[in-house]
Amino acid sequence: MSKLEKKDLEHLAKLSRFDIRPDQEERFLGDLGKILDYFNDLNSVDTSKVSPIFSGGDLKNVMREDETLPDNLDNILCVSEFPEKERGLLKVPPIFE
């Protein structure tokens, strides 16, 4: 599989919404390179006839009615954790400049 380059790391960091300091880049590339090399052992497994699983257990969909629940103390406490709020809603900086 392909090797991770500096520009890949920058792109992945951008997608992940954080910056990687220039002094961290080298170390991250080294660590991730080693880890990705380790993953190569999976190439030797024949999975052509295997179906993937997404959990260890047997999962079923759990549905409920789409309804608004009344405000309770937990909701009020949750809103109190917002850094900035207006009329019980979360206030954030503008999305566009």
Binding site: M1, F39, L42, V45, T47, V50, S51, P52, I53, F54, G56
Partner: peptide, 17 residues
């Protein structure tokens, strides 16, 4: 990379189970 890594891992998970 999805098929080479993530999808492959889900299949190997099936084998481990």
């Amino acid at each position: 990379y999805y098929d080479a890594y993530y999808s492959k891992a889900q299949k190997v998970r099936s084998l481990v189970k």
